[in-house]
Design a protein around this nucleic acid. Structure first.
Lengths: 232, 232
DNA sequence: CGACGATTTGAATAGGATCAATGGGAGTGG
DNA sequence: CCACTCCCATTGATCCTATTCAAATCGTCG
């Protein structure tokens, strides 16, 4: 692994306060792997062998049942995923696939648990991380149950616009098919939702989106910090 | 608090391994309060002052936005709720109200954090608890996104039947209005869903349910351990 | 008995999904 | 460079699920 990448991983909430020796141990054992796009990394139902950390690219967490499939989350660098399964020594509840060419750091679950047993700071970091993840899922569920598809899209666009600098412009970070999954709708429906938002100043040109009437869009979206604010 | 209740709380995963002194400290400070049914205990958006533990009765976690409301979870004794908010020293993401006459143990958030700072076992317990909660929410989201209302009800009935002894009989633990919320549908729809399940041997008499054709019901419900198994 | 809330039933509507067909690049091979 | 292909995105039509609004029924409790 390149030093730069290692520095990024070290900056993760999860590892930031870990004792130097322990971090070095983990990095010694961990290995970084590169994958092309659309490679399935883990499969739901299998035992959690490795903690995964997306170092570059993007990973989609998804789930299947009955022949249906749904996107649960999109993880972008630098972030961990399936931490809970590793800690519980349980099976994965979600599958994961790369959305783009990605590199992923793999740390054997047993090593994570071993460091946990001797590094106090790591415990605290895990607690913070898990609590944040938990709250993120709760927010996602509120988004899903309390809003229509159009409202979810509107709020998503408003969040992205802020994240990308508040210039009234934004670029969709994933293709529309994946975005539809993330927003809990079909691609067809997403297309129509964009259509519905046109009168609210949403101008679409491929992945480039312009928001020309932010006030109108906000009035429609009714953003709610308890759903949309990533820091709460 | 009665000794019996204290014993039950002590048996919670969260407190089971805690050092005796620390547990005694917490119980000293904690206070048990009784509430009639339909009392709102916490309100989303307010700072998390207390860890709550349902000692008897039942508590519904719900959320609002846009004028819509949805049930997120029903918590039954003995279990904690809003742990994540307390740990992050953040605002509640969900509101809570009693469904029945209930007694709730309240522990000030600062004391929880203080014990965390000095009790190693408590850290581990919190991690386990949070990881379980996280996985529970993920399962709930899969249930919601991968199944129709009728399927959710069918699986719910099958889970309850097992939990209540596998006799082919079960009693709904909440009124149907609340059950509808839990299952992500309206009361009217729940009624119709029960109607739809009649040909599959679901016999309804108030809160008493009989499952006379379990095989047929299973065929419809297609239960999935990665959604329905509480121990995974 | 009477009132109130819970549940059920009915009819109309809305939000999304599905199926089918068309347009539009990006990449490939000639 | 161009034709071809493939996949994504869009659009239209239709179907299905679930919500909403309204009304009837049931049960319980005072």
């Amino acid at each position: 692994m390149r030093d730069g990448d290692q520095t990024l991983v070290r900056k993760l909430r999860l590892f930031a306060d870990m004792e130097e020796d322990n971090f070095a141990d983990l990095m010694q054992i961990a290995y970084l792997q590169s994958f092309p796009r659309q490679v399935q990394l883990i499969t739901e139902g299998e035992p959690a062998d490795f903690l995964h950390i997306v170092v570059s690219g993007a990973v989609e967490l998804f789930a299947r049942s009955n022949g249906r499939e749904t996107t649960m989350e999109v993880v972008r660098p630098v972030a961990t995923f399936i931490l809970a399964a590793v800690l519980k020594d349980a099976v994965y509840l979600m599958s994961a696939r790369t959305l783009e060419k990605s590199s992923v750091l793999l740390i054997p679950a047993e090593n994570i648990r071993a460091v946990m047993a001797r590094d106090r700071h790591f415990d605290k970091a895990i607690i913070t991380e898990l609590a944040s993840r938990y709250r993120a899922v709760v927010k996602a569920q509120k988004d899903l149950k309390l809003r229509t598809g159009v409202e979810r899209l509107a709020n998503y666009l408003l969040r992205q616009e802020i994240e990308q600098g508040g210039t009234g412009q934004l670029v969709l970070p994933v293709d529309k098919r994946t975005l539809a999954g993330r927003l809990g709708m079909t691609p067809e429906n997403l297309s129509r939702a964009f259509g519905t938002l046109k009168p609210y100043g949403v101008e679409v040109d491929g992945a480039d989106i312009g928001l020309t009437k932010p006030d109108d869009l906000v009035r429609l979206a009714k953003p709610n910090p308890l759903i949309d604010d990533p820091d709460i």
